[in-house]
Design a protein around this nucleic acid. Structure first.
Length: 884
RNA sequence: GGGCGCGUAGCUCAGGGGUAGAGCGUCGCCCUUACAAGGCGAAUGUCGGCGGUUCGAAACCGUCCGCGCCCACCA
């Protein structure tokens, strides 16, 4: 039996809502209802303006983590609000086949069975990966449903499904025909574990401790010393390079010297790439195993001698054959030492070494034939679109990173020696023919024709995502209606991998129309101490765990509340619990309202009949509506969540609800009016909260209003009150000030009560002198909130608090701790006097008066008069205290 | 080597020329008929150091110290 049913069993008549909010029971069925009713389905034929967001497709490597939950919360909030605002909203779901990542995962699974992919063969292996994809994909969509993602499931796509594969072929062919795709032998980054080429950005550099050894090359008089950290590659050296102006070596340039451990001799070439200051000023050149050396080799027409195979094992003949690169390094240094060629001791040397971003293996530069995208024109357009303001980047600081990248881009190696992915649509014929096939072309069947065995970089298909998901290359209605995307929400970590590629492909394929208007880059989710979340560190959290425990709304609200633009988001379980408490607070406040007859029926009461309390809350409500809208337009999720949190909890659920209790007790027209106002305030507040916390608000709002669903309700605009029409909606600054004063009075007396050790519930006789003050109408509320009884026969004013012109006299029946109160009042008095001194110092400072803006001067004057009033009040309180 | 950013309450972070803020945590009192997943009250910071600009600096500038991230063909 749950806690809720226990509460329901109590004898007090309960409203239809249980006492405690139980998210787990509510959320699942609600979501399915939303989907069944088609709320999230986007209609390409709609007359409404479109609002489109594609999901950054999660990799089908496993399940979603908190980072996805974060991203989805932001996108869902944006799209839910736009849907409520009357846009034809498409949040397009889907997943990414994630070539190398997924292949690695499945290979690891196979390894557990003691098999490799080669045991299965290409076809069976790919079949196996599809199986994995189906399982993983199911998990992911289950998590998205649990989160409440308002996606159009009928449009779910996968980067390897039929349509998207056609899009990939189409784009490849177009690029090929435009000579923006070519095949070339170059030095690429090779992962000897994944056994594939990877692109530049798939290499992660980190500082590794290496050793710099100095080796004497040549014989007799014709020797020089080179410094290297990679002695094992010397077997493939085809030159030594020195700077052309380096006099030390001038006599050797053009000569050949003996390469140690081999029977080859190699030339000494002059190349400006060499830094004479570094090491000995002479560099060994291994064109087949180093990108710089390769370029030197090109300039000097040097041969390329590869000495390692795809596993980074030495293939050169001799004693080193079969050693891997590290074994070979020490073996070769040992051999060189034996020959007396190590002229300086090994010296520790920290240098930056590239690692495979997927498996962390040290990358081996390797000469090989690969497919490339010529990025020059594409990157130029991608940069210009942002420079011209056609695409906005949020936060704007990230633009610089974007420009730095697209402006300095090297050609993109797109071929991968993998099995899982889009196979390169190029066929080779028996007589050296090379044919690139378009999507509708027949595959050649003749003798000797074979398709390229490589697949495309997974980011190639991701780059098409904003339009391939809409049916491109077909000119579909959806493409017409929903391209370009309104906004792209994604992490700054894939700005280059994905965002820049979408920009390049989108502009290229869609005739210069960028794929989205705005790029919103969010941070990474971290743990509550700001540490990166990772499975190996043990601080990774499955979002489902917290959703089960606290509800999806709680998780979503916590994430949204942490979403400051572009910065990382720490999250801890305590914080989710806090958000759960907020959801429960919303629940109970609405429950209170329902028990007291709050309603949304009929017009709001006319302004002249409304109490100051009602006018205050409506005025505040309208400020918050405006504030939340402004924050949404600026993608300030943390700000809007915080504003809603404080408005809802502090102002509505706390002050306003407490104040309505007196009104409801008294009944009459005032109570009827307040029921309507309370209903209105809740109606709007629940709507404002809905995009971030959709479930609890849906449950409460449908109960409150009897309407079908918040998902399709209208987004609130400023509330108007009959008889007080104003352009920006109803505002009442006088009422706001009046209630502020009321709050100050109540807080002051509460503090006094607390200081005096009076228990919160203890009734105290009191005389209130409120005549002629703005607080006069609030006497009943003041008495109720402060537990003040009417004065009795023997009333003695033992403590008097003159606040804002009113007087509250409490009969503390001689129990007052006079010494403590004097002490506290003395402290307050000192503070007020200090304030007066400070303010006077300013107001007599001519430089200040001359230069400070009027607003500031007025503020200081206000502060001065408040301090003066405080002193009067405090003196009054001191005088009213009985003698010790 | 280049670029960007950050150091504010015990923790995580907002703020940003005019009296220091939030959430969580801490302390005290309370089951006050929506909510103890709650209410009320309280405490807590020379806003990293040092200079400068200014009537006024936590905020702007310089510099130093400490962190983080991104980029780069440092043999």
């Amino acid at each position: 039996m749950t806690e809720n049913t226990q509460h329901q069993n109590s004898s007090v008549p309960e409203p239809e809502l249980p006492k405690t909010y139980a998210p787990a029971e509510v959320e699942g069925p609600l979501y399915e209802r939303w989907v069944d009713r088609g709320y999230f389905a986007a209609d390409a034929k709609s007359e409404k303006p479109p609002y489109t967001v594609v999901i950054p497709p999660p990799n089908v490597t496993g399940s979603l983590h908190l980072g996805h939950a974060f991203e989805h919360t932001l996108i869902d909030a944006l799209t839910r609000r736009k849907r409520m605002q009357g846009f034809e909203t498409l949040w397009q779901p889907g997943m990414d086949h994630a070539g190398i990542a997924t292949q690695n995962v499945v290979e690891r699974e196979l390894a557990k069975e003691g098999k490799s992919r080669h045991d299965l063969g290409r076809e069976a292996f790919v079949e196996r990966v599809w199986q994995w994809k189906n399982e993983s994909g199911g998990q992911i969509s289950g998590q998205m449903r649990r989160l409440g993602d308002g996606v159009d499931w009928d449009r779910e796509r996968f980067t390897m499904d039929e349509g998207l594969s056609q899009a990939v072929k189409t784009l490849f062919k177009k690029l090929y025909d435009d000579e923006l795709i070519y095949r070339a032998e170059r030095i690429i980054n090779w992962c000897p574990r994944c056994l594939t080429a990877i692109s530049d950005i798939e290499v992660e550099y980190q500082d590794d401790e290496g050793e710099l050894v100095s080796v004497k090359y040549g014989e007799g008089e014709e020797t020089l010393v080179v410094a290297t950290t990679r002695a094992e590659t010397m077997l493939g050296d085809t030159a030594v390079a020195v700077h052309p102006d380096d006099e030390r070596y001038a006599h050797l340039i053009g000569k050949r010297i003996k390469l140690p451990l081999t029977d080859r001799s190699i030339p000494v070439v002059a190349d400006t790439h060499v830094d004479p200051e570094f090491g000995t000023g002479a560099v060994k050149v291994t064109p087949a195993h180093d990108p710089n050396d390769f370029e030197i080799g090109q300039r000097h027409d040097l041969p390329n001698i590869a000495v390692m195979d795809e596993h980074a094992v030495i293939t050169a003949h001799g004693p080193f054959q079969g050693l891997d690169r590290l074994e070979a390094r020490s073996a070769i240094v040992g051999a060189l030492r034996a020959e007396g060629r190590i002229v300086a001791e090994k010296r520790p040397y920290t240098h930056s070494v590239g690692h495979c971003s997927r498996c962390k293996t040290t990358v081996e530069p390797r000469l090989s034939m690969q497919w490339w995208v010529k990025v020059g024109p594409l990157a130029k357009a991608a940069g210009d679109a942002v420079r011209d303001g056609k695409v906005k980047v949020h936060p704007q600081e990230m633009e610089k990173r974007y420009f730095d990248w697209v402006d300095n881009l090297h050609d993109w190696c797109i071929s991968r020696q993998l099995w899982w992915g889009h196979r390169i649509p190029v066929w080779y014929g028996p007589n050296g023919e090379v044919v690139c096939l378009g999507p509708d072309d027949e595959e050649p069947t003749g003798e000797g024709w074979t398709q390229d065995t490589d697949v495309l970089d997974t980011w190639f298909s991701s780059g098409l995502w904003p339009f391939s998901t809409l049916g491109w290359p077909e000119q579909t209605e959806s493409l017409e209606k929903f391209y370009p995307n309104s906004v792209l929400v994604t992490g700054y970590d894939i700005l280059f991998f994905w965002v820049a590629r979408m920009m390049m492909f989108g502009l290229y394929a869609m005739d210069g129309t960028p794929p989205f208007h705005t790029i919103v880059l969010h941070g990474m989710v971290r743990d509550q101490f700001g540490k990166k979340m990772s499975k190996s560190f043990g601080n990774a959290v499955n979002p489902l765990d917290w959703m089960d425990k606290y509800g999806s709304d709680a998780l979503r609200f916590t994430l949204a509340r942490g979403a400051n633009p572009g910065v990382d988001v720490p999250i801890g379980e305590d914080w989710v619990q806090g958000s759960r408490n907020f959801a429960n607070k919303i629940w109970n406040a609405t429950r209170f309202a329902l028990m007291n007859g709050a309603t949304v029926e009929g017009e709001l009461p006319p302004a002249e009949r409304l109490s100051a309390t009602d006018r205050w809350i409506l005025s505040r409500l309208n400020s918050v509506v405006a504030e939340v809208d402004a924050y949404y337009e600026d993608y300030q999720f943390a700000k809007l969540s915080d504003a809603l949190f404080h408005f809802a909890w502090d102002e509505v659920f706390d002050w306003y609800v407490e104040l309505t209790k007196t009104t409801f007790q008294e009944g009459g027209q005032a109570a009827e009016d307040t029921k309507r106002v309370l209903g209105e305030v809740l109606d709007v507040t629940l709507k404002l909260l809905h995009p971030v916390v959709p479930f609890v608000t849906e449950t409460l709002w449908t109960t409150l209003t009897g309407n079908e669903s918040l998902v399709i309700a209208d987004w609130p605009t400023a509330v108007s009150v009959p008889g007080a029409d104003a352009p920006g909606g109803f505002r009442d600054e006088a009422a706001e000030r009046e209630i502020e004063t009321l709050q100050q009075v109540i807080t002051e007396v509460r503090r006094f009560r607390s200081d005096q050790g009076l228990q919160p519930g203890q009734k105290v006789p009191a005389r209130l002198t409120l005549d002629g003050t703005a607080l006069a109408p609030h006497e009943a509320a003041i008495r109720q909130l402060l537990r003040l009884q009417p004065e009795g026969e023997g009333f003695a004013a033992t403590a008097t608090l003159p606040v804002s012109g009113a007087t509250v006299a409490l009969d503390l029946s001689g129990t007052i701790d006079v010494a403590a109160e004097r002490k506290r009042l003395a402290k307050d008095l000192a503070a007020a006097e200090k304030e007066i001194t400070a303010a006077n110092a300013k107001l007599t400072n001519e430089a200040f008066l001359a230069k400070a803006p009027d607003q500031v001067v007025d503020k200081i004057r206000g502060r001065l008069s408040k301090a003066e009033a405080d002193i009067e009040r405090i003196k009054g309180q001191l005088d009213a205290l009985p003698a010790a």
